[in-house]
Design a protein around this nucleic acid. Structure first.
Lengths: 199, 199
DNA sequence: GTCTATATCTGGATAGAC
DNA sequence: GTCTATCCAGATATAGAC
């Protein structure tokens, strides 16, 4: 059904990829079937051969977004490395997927809260899986004594993913280096910004 | 023109406040003049007595959003306190404005990137003023030797504001305490999450 | 200051030719 | 698998009564 090929080699894939970019830029309601079709060099009616409705396109875009970033981060976390390097690597993987590789991932971040509730609900399971991936990793770090005792894992994960996703609002991968960005974020988050640790 | 009164005491203010909530929830294109009017117990045609167009409502909503959070944070930063307390206070002020007081602020965060470019451009100046407020404060901290030398102020400001704005996606002020949230965030950002500081 | 009525356009979705 | 043509609901905005 959904393929792993990065580019869009079927019409169906091309429609999904195009829709993701448009949703990301204009929001859910700001994208019409006519516009999607136009960007795929098709007519609107033809889309309904591949998809039953606009919302079906939406659901697939949202799920693919999480699945792609999940796969990227999971691959990095499977590699054995120091806690600092694993955190750096996982952050870098998330940022690359968000900013460079996947319009699905960025679309998910931008429009998730404004899609119809039934659509949102049908993507919650995939979302929870990604959260669990991070919580598992951070739990390991804590169990290994690498995190401060008073750091709450869920709070940190929410702050981290929030900070990473927000780069979408200002970072341009044409102008900056995503890996450098990841290193800077990882350093600030791991070590803090204050010269002296205190209360 | 724009008043400081928290609630909406004129019809014009009520329209703006209602529009902000709707924009925040449904996105720019997802809100119609009919819907705004309906939520204000009016008919769509009546809105045009107060505003020339939907985009004019939008511009005012966006600018009010930044102005409100700017005022809240600036007020806190005027108070003399320790670096840690000032950071905590500024973060708390931003989060309160975002999550509790101002639908304008949350609307701004959610829809800024999807509004028509001319509208976005007409609000850039107000935005820059808020960024300058934070950069000024962080610059003071750095000049006073309170920040690590290798922390880049712009990077941190972007990460911080991004992390704070992202709370909109998951935090419910009915269920959690915004001040506690602010304290946790300030602590993690100031001191980091790792047990030992390192590379 | 708000209403009704309307002009004009664009939206999602379907039917049926090819 | 893609097209054209079309239905109908809903969009912004305007005009003019009250």
């Amino acid at each position: 059904m959904t393929q792993d090929t990065p580019a869009a080699d079927t019409t169906r894939d091309r429609v999904l990829s195009t829709s993701a970019s448009l949703f990301c830029r204009y929001g859910y309601a700001g994208v019409s079937m006519r516009k999607i079709a136009q960007c795929c060099d098709m007519k609107a009616g033809s889309l309904y051969y591949h998809f039953a409705s606009k919302d079906q396109i939406l659901v697939e875009v949202l799920n693919l977004g999480i699945e792609k970033v999940h796969a990227a981060v999971a691959a990095v976390l499977r590699v054995d490395a120091s806690p600092a390097d694993r955190l750096r690597g996982a952050i870098a993987a998330h940022l690359h997927a968000l900013l460079e590789y996947s319009s699905f991932t960025s679309a998910n971040v931008r429009i998730f809260r404004q899609v119809p509730v039934p659509v949102r609900d049908s993507t919650l399971e995939v979302r929870r899986g990604y959260e669990a991936l991070w919580d598992g990793f951070l739990g390991e770090l804590k169990a290994g004594g690498h995190l401060r005792d008073d750091v709450d894992i869920r709070s940190f994960r929410l702050m981290l993913i929030g900070a990473l996703n927000a780069t979408l609002e200002w970072f341009d991968p044409e102008l900056g280096d995503v890996s450098e960005l990841a290193d800077r974020y990882a350093d600030m988050l791991a070590n803090g910004i204050f010269a002296e640790r205190g209360t």
